[in-house]
Design a protein around this nucleic acid. Structure first.
Lengths: 202, 202
DNA sequence: GAACATACGGACCCGCGGTCCGTTTTTCAA
DNA sequence: TTGAAAAACGGACCGCGGGTCCGTATGTTC
């Protein structure tokens, strides 16, 4: 028996909370002045309900984030090129990074809230792990590239939510410019010719 | 007369706090379970004193960080090669990144505490601004490299404290390996594609 | 519709950053 | 040397936010 079905007021409230939180994070300047009590109030629900449904603040953030991310995740896992498999690795890396960047541009506050939300580094988050191993796997197929694990980390670091926020929000870099710069950067990393040192693969 | 000299108990206490905080951050697992009260107690001082001397938690962190960082900063600004000026740009970029990485490896907890310490992104911190503009200036002299502003951000992102912590602490990557990987990564970024390479380093 | 399971919600608790203010120490001029 | 103004001390105190508890309400089942 997988799981007994929830009561319907429970699911209704869950949705309400998700929606309210989404709206709040989008509206408020900084994620950290969206308080749990705020969310509960906005959803027309008691704090107890909120915490029962999501465990803690991080849980709520995670739920929101995963919900938003799922389409992209699927597209990356089994979608059509250039995001999905069956794309030349070099091109696919760029596409993946671009997708992540766009996602974070479109969900700045939320991504920010999740990544900086106190408890533990973003590097233990399940979704990070996922992106990292996917990217690493693809990088492994790029000829002449070593240290794909580290490289994946480094490339992903260029799409960190607070950096994106800084660029888009503070430095006023336009979306397309940011995308172009990231793409350019990725290209540089991938197409470096001569720098192989201890590679024996390929 | 710029500023009247502080009372000597004030400076003594300031030192005591700095030392105590340093020790505490080094010892405790996570920076966030070093409380202000802890620091005050460890320094044998009241909370009031602590806050009067440093303004707030971020101020204390900043003071600690700056103190540790100063030597490297000077070395980078006016020291001998390869860190200082008068070094070929590519080599200098690597040297700078390596210095930052080593610094963060040696001061993991502290760097972590400062970068994640709630208030605002690390990107508004004065020291970040400093590193970024230095690195950007050097990158500007690398032939064939565009977007030096973004590139500087991206390279610095690869040395973020929580990433370093993840690599060194969680993935157990040895120091020298991490350094080599970062250097390799930097090299790739700098010696890209069509421009062939002119690296004769090492 | 009774009896059981489940969810509700807001009063409540706790720890932490930060402030306040009566007390103590330092300084300095007389 | 002294005494009073200036500066610093320190810990009780405050507000806020995350998280819990439990008596009450609502849905579910037979």
């Amino acid at each position: 028996m997988p799981e007994r079905k929830s009561r319907k007021d429970a699911v209704r409230n869950r949705e309400a909370v998700l929606a309210a939180a989404d709206a709040l994070f989008a509206r408020r300047e900084s994620p950290e002045d969206v308080t749990m009590a705020d969310v509960a109030a906005a959803a027309g629900v008691g704090k107890g309900t909120l915490f029962r449904a999501f465990g803690d603040r991080a849980g709520l953030l995670r739920a929101l984030y995963e919900a938003r991310l799922e389409p992209i995740r699927e597209a990356a896992e089994a979608g059509p090129p250039p995001l999905g498999p069956g794309t030349p690795p070099q091109r696919r890396v760029s596409a993946l990074l671009d997708a992540i960047l766009c996602f974070k541009l479109d969900n700045r506050r939320l991504a920010l809230a999740l990544e900086e939300s106190g408890n533990g580094s973003p590097y233990q988050a399940e979704h990070y792990e996922w992106w990292h191993s996917l990217l690493r796997a693809v990088l492994e197929q790029v000829p002449g590239l070593t240290d794909s694990g580290f490289t994946a980390h480094a490339l992903l670091a260029a799409t960190r939510a607070d950096l994106v926020e800084h660029l888009a929000g503070h430095e006023r870099v336009p979306r397309e410019t940011a995308r172009a710069q990231l793409a350019n950067f990725a290209t540089r990393v991938l197409t470096s010719g001569p720098a192989r040192e201890l590679s024996a693969d390929d």
